[in-house]
Amino acid sequence: MGEREYLEYYALNRRGVSGWFRMRGYTIERKLYALHRITGILIVLFMLPHFYSTGWHPGIWWDALLGIIVTFHVANGVRLTLLELLGAGIGKPLLVKKPFQRPVSIEGRQRYLLALTVLLFIVLAVIWSYYAVIVKPLMGG
């Protein structure tokens, strides 16, 4: 990093990629946002050898891990699609706000959707791991 970049870095005060992972003190939605980014990047990284040879597999345990990454991305992706395109559980704007009112979009019905997403992720991840680690080797890889 040259002197100019160094000076710009502090003067512009931009968070950059570290901004995705500043999660302390924020709500759980932010953690899911960061995980969605990481899993998305990892899936793209897996795609590169996958395009070269579709038969490529990283080994039993990595296979299970890859499945967990994909299932999280899918489950959270379904949640985000429902939230963003249909506004599911996002609530209505308020006409009267109570003192120290918590945001409706965070504390409202959207949280049930979030719980369902986590549940869906766990179920899919367990099924996939069982298949990848136990069933698939028995069937001869």
């Binding site: 946002y33 963003e84 706000k97």
Partner: peptide, 30 residues
């Protein structure tokens, strides 16, 4: 570009709830 990290609503000192506004905006555009 918004993917509902909801930190905007979390920190808003006037409880404006921008995250809700943005999701409703997307719904409106769709």
């Amino acid at each position: 570009r918004c993917h509902f990290a909801a930190s905007c609503s979390d920190v808003c000192p006037k409880y404006v709830d921008p995250a809700q506004g943005i999701q409703l905006l997307k719904k409106l555009i769709v």
